[in-house]
Structure formats: C-alpha cells, structure tokens
C-alpha cells in the first residue's frame, strides 16, 4: 500500500553554508513572502506578549455589555474597540490570546507529527524488510481509520484540553511525514556518502540521523509549513463540531464557531475579526511555504502536496 510516487527519486544537494545568504537574497527579490513574514511577526508578537499587550482579561464577562458593536458603530463602547461577544467578553483581548493558542496548537502539532513521522519514516526506509513492513502497516491502519474518530478517541479518553488536542492533531499527520521520509531515505540509502560513513564504522543511528536525515529534510520542512495552516483550520472545524478546546480557552476557531448563531442576527463582528485572523495567518503561512518550496527545491512542485 506504499505509494510508489514517493519513491520517485528527488535529488538534491543543499549546500548548507550558503543557505541563509541565498534565502536573504531570494526573500528580498520577492514581495509577498516579506508581507507574509510581517503578518506572522505580528501574530507571533501577540502570541508571545499576549498578557502584556491585551487590554482586558479575555475571560472577564459582563453580561450587561454583551454583543457591543466595534469601532464607532452605533451603540459601541469605547472600552471595547472590537466589540464584545455573547458573554460580554472583549473581542480584541480574546483575539490576542487566541493567537497564542492557534499558533501553539499549529506549531506543536506539526512538530510532534513531523518528528514522529520523520524518525519512523527514516527508520523504515533505512532498515527495510520487517521493520519497514510493521511501520508501514501501522501507517496504513491509521490512514484507513477516519481521522475524526481518532480525534474523538483521544479527546474523550484523555479528556478535552489543549495538550490533548495538539497530541491528536500531531498524531493525525505523522503518516504523511513517514511516507515521504521513507521514500527519500530509500533513495539515499545506497549513496556514496552513506557507504563512506558505513565503511568508517559509523553505527546505524549515526548514519540515519547524522548522514541521511539532513539530506531528506527539505521536502519535510515544506510540507510542515503547509500543515501548520491546515492544523489551524482543523482546530476551527473541531470547534464547530464541539470537539475543540474548552470554551473557556479563547481560540480563533472557537470564536468563529461560537459566532455562527449571530450571523443571521447581524452581529458580524463576532465572525469577521477571528475570520480575518485565521485567513491572514493561514494565507501568510501558505505564501511562505510556497516561497520555501521554490527556494529549497523547485523540483518538488510536482511531488504531490
């Protein structure tokens, strides 16, 4: 069941010393990636310094002031520049805190899934045979298992909360990394530099993670940039189904999901601000991912992601 396309050999040879310099040049030439980086810097700043810059406690309710509109719209309250939600909480503060959760969930889930998948994939590709069979069968089980069910399993068995959400979204994507890492490793396994390391008496782990890994990393880094975006969207969908983080934790996805009863009522600000936050962030990550792909390896364009 292993996807043969993955084993199409993708040759590359990233010369590390000049990477950063070339990256700087390439970035300066392109406009959009710079904009994307600017957006992400703002989001990261909010995530890092949320408690310092947030004007209010994001969970402080005030039922009497619920659904106050933003800006100068009639009925607006100057204390809440972006208005309040259904419990009278400050939307601006929740957005700022939400950046923290959305980024945290997106990045950590990808790091967990990426590390797990990459290591398993490299091991499977390197050893082949039975080890490969076992790991790839587990991958098949996971792929054949509807992701939504897996999500509910983890959230129900371990209880709801951010750590468990991150865990399940991470576990949900290890297979992608494993398959690609495996294919790449197979194509590298017989290369001269691996033979050289072997003849110098390096052990398996050293060969796998010191020699091979750096040479298979490029496509994995690119995929992970796209996956950060898709994890942020998954969190929103899970919130819609009532499976996301608890409602006391402000997240963009949760805010958007809560806003759906207010759309018909014309309370647009509940949806528009978190919606813009999600879209801009995902857009920025995607643009950056595109650039990263073109920069690291233009040949990967057709490789299936």
């Amino acid at each position: 069941m292993v996807n043969p396309a993955i084993s199409i050999s993708l040759k590359q040879d990233v010369r590390r010393p000049s990477v950063w310099r070339r990256a700087r040049f390439s970035l300066i030439r392109a406009k959009w990636p710079l904009v994307a980086i600017a957006i992400l810097l703002v989001v990261t700043f909010c995530a890092a310094f949320g408690p310092l810059i947030s004007p209010k406690d994001p969970n402080r309710q005030n039922l009497v002031l619920r659904l106050a509109p933003p800006f100068q719209v009639e009925g607006a309250n100057p204390e809440f520049p972006l208005g309040t939600d259904g419990l009278g909480r400050d939307i601006l503060s929740r957005l700022i805190y939400g950046a923290r959760v959305s980024l945290l969930v997106g990045l950590t889930a990808v790091v967990i899934g990426g590390m797990l998948g990459t290591s398993l994939g490299v091991v499977a590709g390197y050893f082949g045979g039975r080890v490969d069979d076992i790991i790839m069968r587990i991958a098949d089980v996971q792929l054949a298992f509807p992701f939504i069910l897996l999500t509910i399993m983890v959230l129900v068995v371990l209880g709801p909360g951010i750590p468990n959400l991150v865990l399940v979204l991470g576990i949900g994507q290890w297979v992608t990394y494993a398959r690609i890492a495996r294919g790449q490793t197979i194509s590298q396994r017989e290369k001269e530099y691996v033979e050289a390391a072997r003849s110098m008496g390096a052990n398996h782990w050293r060969i796998m993670f010191r020699s091979i890994l750096p040479n298979v990393l490029a496509p994995l880094i690119i995929i992970s940039s796209f996956n950060v975006a898709s994890v942020i969207l998954s969190e929103a969908s899970l919130s819609f189904l009532g499976l996301g983080v608890p409602p006391t934790v402000p997240t963009w996805g949760g805010m958007l999901a809560e806003s759906r009863d207010q759309l018909l009522a014309g309370k647009w600000w509940l949806a528009v601000f978190p919606g813009i936050a999600i879209m801009m962030t995902v857009l920025a990550i995607n643009i950056l991912g595109d650039w990263l792909r073109d920069f690291l390896d233009p040949r990967l364009r057709g490789a299936g992601f």
């Binding site: 396309a5 992701f147 939504i148 969908s237 819609f240």
Partner: peptide, 23 residues
Amino acid sequence: NALIPIVTMLGLEFGFLLSGVVV
C-alpha cells in the same frame, strides 16, 4: 504527467474527506 500529483492526492484525501463530510 500533470495528472500524477492529483492522482496521489485522490488516494490520500479519502481519510481526510470524511471529516469534511461530517461538517
């Protein structure tokens, strides 16, 4: 040749599709 990546996606997409379908 341009079809190849799309065919790849079709196979992988199925698992993800179900959660989209639920929504």
